[in-house]
């Protein structure tokens, strides 16, 4: 018996997602990071969110994409997202039009966003705000301002 064929997709067709009236489109996320990004944003359950996972991308091979209704990302959120997906792009939409585009850039110092993975760091006391110096951005390296431990991308833990 011949194997069942997937339904034919007409050439040139695209997945249709309803246009966004107000909100943010986060594009060019590293494939597999969309759910982590949603966790970073910690959105209310009454907000509509459209997620595209592992979409084909000319530039990236594969990418994730998120559309969020009625939420304009703020700089702190952009910085956090940059830590997991440094080349993500952010389009702020008002009345169906892009009114602002943001590209994440890591600041010299990241304050109170991350947890230091060193169990002997003084910041394990919750009364202390964490601070990390961005040492390298190409192959991401952060250094805890307090214990001076160097942290790689896979060790990053958000507060």
């Amino acid at each position: 018996m011949p194997a069942e064929q997937p339904p034919r997709v007409p050439e040139g067709s695209k997945i249709k997602v309803s246009a966004l009236r107000e909100g943010t489109v986060i594009d060019h996320l590293v494939a597999g990071t969309a759910l982590k990004v949603l966790k970073i944003l910690g959105l209310d359950s009454d907000r509509s969110v459209t997620i595209g996972l592992n979409l084909e991308s000319k530039k990236m091979g594969h990418k994730d994409l998120i559309k969020i209704e009625r939420h304009e990302v703020i700089n702190e959120e952009v910085q956090k997202i940059a830590l997991v997906s440094p080349n993500a792009t952010f389009s702020i939409i008002r009345d169906f039009h892009v009114v602002q585009k943001l590209s994440p850039s890591l600041p010299e110092m990241i304050e109170n966003l991350l947890r230091c993975p060193n169990p002997s760091c003084v910041t394990t006391d919750d009364r202390v705000r964490t601070k990390f110096i961005v040492v390298r951005t190409d192959s991401l390296r952060l250094r805890c301002h307090y214990c001076e431990r160097t942290i790689r991308k896979d060790e990053i833990e958000l507060l």
Binding site: S120, C121, V122, H145, Y146
Partner: peptide
Amino acid sequence: RHPFEGAARL
């Protein structure tokens, strides 16, 4: 002198 790393900076 402190057993926690970063204590002096703090």
